[in-house]
Design a protein around this nucleic acid. Structure first.
Lengths: 289, 289
DNA sequence: TGGCAGGTTGCTCCCAGAGCAACAAGATTC
DNA sequence: GAATCTTGTTGCTCTGGGAGCAACCTGCCA
């Protein structure tokens, strides 16, 4: 492993792994996370402080990510998507009063990359950095709207049974999942109750570019009690919102890998890491409602 | 320079340096920015892609920051401050219809770390990652509200004349600046017209913790035509908002370095890099309005 | 077709990172 | 209060990985 990867690994050890956030880590803690010597980690941390990427609390000696990382992130990811999605997420929050999320695919998980909430919405329901399972979350299934059966199987192969947080509502096996996906594809949105936490319901729809390529998933989550009789209305809003993002992206955004148009920003989807699952989606441009 | 610093330097080369954003860079470009060999940079970039920190466009071969960086940033900086400030910035946007910013101090510059805008506000006026001069911007001067004259001189020593973007309204020398600061301290807020762009007016107030320690600056910017007769009203809103943040931070947030209270997150202010200017502020707890 | 720019890879040399041990300071335990 | 443990940090040595050069390949342009 190269030093650059080690540095990256060390920085990524600061990722929020829950909604609480507030990541401040000690040298020993980090050393055990990345599996390296304390001395090593200590020196590397000092270098990163030098570079203003990290900051160290003078009292507790613990480290955390500096402001510059926050600045960096403003330009991270697919900027066209980010800029198109932001106001639309805000509008969704304004109209529903619930939390709105944008999630991209990372290997065989969903990775939530954007969140907007209203001032009086509950501080619950998905956080930036949350990894979602593919089979028992609305977002995960919406990410698989364009996947053929084989790909669905590959993406969820190791997940059934593994993750115990699934509820009785969740599909028990691949067949149930495929059946559920067929229904949800037809209706154009996915729903899951008790997805992340008990009493939480979320509705998800895919976001596509103008070539029909699935880029991300748009999601609204709220307490089941508030959501129950609004699911369809919210789904309708979400589908409109998704279309609005597609429109805002413009025709020049990305294209299928096969397409030879020479547009500028044209990354696939999320990261495409060295993972067992090859993420080639079936290319079925779905007509925009 | 250690490899870790080089890696950091390379990542920081992706920082947005203007409002346009969209940072996608080629190997050669990056090599010239960090002043190193293309081959070197190329290998380092590949490692960072491996770690999913960067992504490479398969067509153009250019690199950009990945989604994981965006995720990282959600936990970067003073989390307590970030969480307290977010809803208050949103409220300011809602009430004024203009852009609201939060800026911390980084050496002898202001570094804007948070931005909220309304859907119909102009896409202008400060971006995340913007560096502000201390003397001819409202934000810069608000950052110096607690600084004594010597510190002000030190912070702005190399800036007069150097930055040609200053306008006729700007203080020409340290004396004028000090005079202006005295007035602005008394009224509790700083104003600057044509600060960032022509036709843009911005109003700034300091944000403090409950110990009176200056943490950041809150700012609202808009077109001069819309701002002109609202400056005082907006300043009043800003001062209230600043107080609300102070309140939201809670009594446990930080303390003066001298204070021996054992609270948890207690970093000084922004980054405190190896810079010529020692940033020790005069400790004059200013009563909260 | 030839030249050029830009991304990538091979190869060699030597510097910087790995590992160990030790030290200082604070926390914890007896 | 002494002993012990934990944790952050630094010295030192050795070797593996980063630096630098050159070459290769591809797409672009004249």
């Amino acid at each position: 492993m190269s030093t650059a990867e080690k540095v990256a690994q060390l920085m990524l050890a600061f990722e929020c792994d829950n909604a609480a956030g507030s990541v401040e880590r000690s040298v020993s803690e980090l050393a055990s996370i990345v599996g390296r010597e304390r001395s090593q980690v200590c020196r590397m941390l000092k270098s990163l402080c030098q570079a203003q990427v990290l900051e160290q609390d003078p009292d507790s000696h613990r480290y955390r990510l500096g402001w510059r990382v926050r600045v960096l992130a403003a330009g991270a990811g697919d900027q066209v998507l980010v800029r198109a999605a932001r106001p639309i997420l805000q509008a969704l929050v304004a109209r529903t009063g619930e939390v709105a999320l944008l999630t991209v695919q990372e290997a065989n998980r969903g990775l939530t990359v954007m969140r907007e909430e209203s001032q009086n919405s509950l501080r619950r329901g998905g956080w930036i950095g949350q990894r979602s399972a593919m089979h028992f979350t609305a977002t995960g299934r919406a990410l698989m709207f364009d996947a053929d059966d084989d790909l669905v199987k590959a993406l969820t192969a190791d997940q059934f049974g593994a993750d115990s947080r699934s509820t009785p509502n969740a599909p028990r096996n691949v067949e149930e999942l495929l059946q559920r996906l067929r229904i949800e594809r037809r209706q154009g949105y996915a729903v899951a109750s008790e997805e992340i936490e008990a009493g939480l319901t979320s509705v998800s729809v895919p976001v596509r570019n103008m070539h029909g390529h699935l880029l991300a998933v748009l999601n609204v989550s709220g307490p089941t009690t508030r959501m129950n009789d609004r699911v369809e209305a919210i789904a309708k809003l979400l589908i409109e919102a998704s279309g609005a993002i597609t429109h805002a992206l413009g025709p020049r955004h990305a294209q299928d890998r096969e397409g030879a148009h020479r547009a500028r920003p044209s990354f696939d989807r999320a990261a495409s890491p060295r993972h067992a699952v090859e993420q080639r989606h079936q290319q079925t441009p779905v007509p925009m409602p």
